[in-house]
Design a protein around this nucleic acid. Sequence first.
DNA 1: CTAAGTAGGACTGGATTTGTCTGAATTTGT
DNA 2: ACAAATTCAGACAAATCCAGTCCTACTTAG
Lengths: 154, 154
Amino acid sequence: MLRLTKKADYGLMALKYLAEQTDGSARSAKDIAEAYHIPPQLLAKILQTLAKTGLLVSHAGANGGYALSRPAKEISAFEVIRAIDGPLFITSCITIHGACDLTSTCTIKEPLRKVNDSIKDLLSGIHIADLVDADGEQGGTGAPVGGGLVSIAI
Amino acid sequence: MLRLTKKADYGLMALKYLAEQTDGSARSAKDIAEAYHIPPQLLAKILQTLAKTGLLVSHAGANGGYALSRPAKEISAFEVIRAIDGPLFITSCITIHGACDLTSTCTIKEPLRKVNDSIKDLLSGIHIADLVDADGEQGGTGAPVGGGLVSIAI
DNA sequence: CTAAGTAGGACTGGATTTGTCTGAATTTGT
DNA sequence: ACAAATTCAGACAAATCCAGTCCTACTTAG
């Protein structure tokens, strides 16, 4: 129902990967891409924009790469998503200027704006560090792949 | 950041419109489309799917149209959105089968699934009746839209 | 019977996403 | 100084998805 782009997904995965590198050394886009089997050039782009927005610090040259600019605890999923996907909104009504094409006719935007804010709060409360913690303690051992039980498609 | 399709938007607007009709009489797709200046044929399609999922009751023929199948208080925004946009998920990882292409590599899906659930809860708490109530008091003050708390524990 | 409706499939144009290619600029190691 | 590894930047191609239109049925009140 509400979709995050793959780029945002990849970005979160990459940040998580970087958060797991305890030594402060940088990792290259290629390394990360290989670790998760995602298209290297695409990830490169994503990391570039992440660096441009200040969430990552980059270092060119041999042995260069990317590293988190802040502790993983202080980087929220919301920041990452906004950096990659831009300031999109739940409804097309709600633009950056807050105005709706159908200002007079569309009477729905105000309630939805609150939903939007709630989602924002929700994502702001999740940090990269949380992703790292949740790893490994997956309720289902991550195994039920073939098993077919799993998720209730809403 | 997270987007709702225009169809879902239109659907919510239409349901709100129908909720405002106090007499139980049905309204045609054309009427609603004109009221909100949205493409009639597109709205017709949306109402059809809404009828197919049981949120609306339809009545063909002259003087036909659509009406809510239940009180506006008992139709949640979540139901509407799911009916129109289908059971999509916040991340492309989480499919209907619950499996990720990168099952082993993508370690991010579990936390995001919780976000997904929280958003679902959020939208389930909003009903068509709330949209009607919120109308007119655009100040954004007392709209009874989900108290905002929605806590999430990862 | 006919006009006003719904039901539903096929299709188009455009936007968005996803991914690739190519050519730089920057740093490090030798 | 040079070569290799790497980031940076933009353009571009392919695929997918969305919005909107059209056309043809079927249904029912009058």
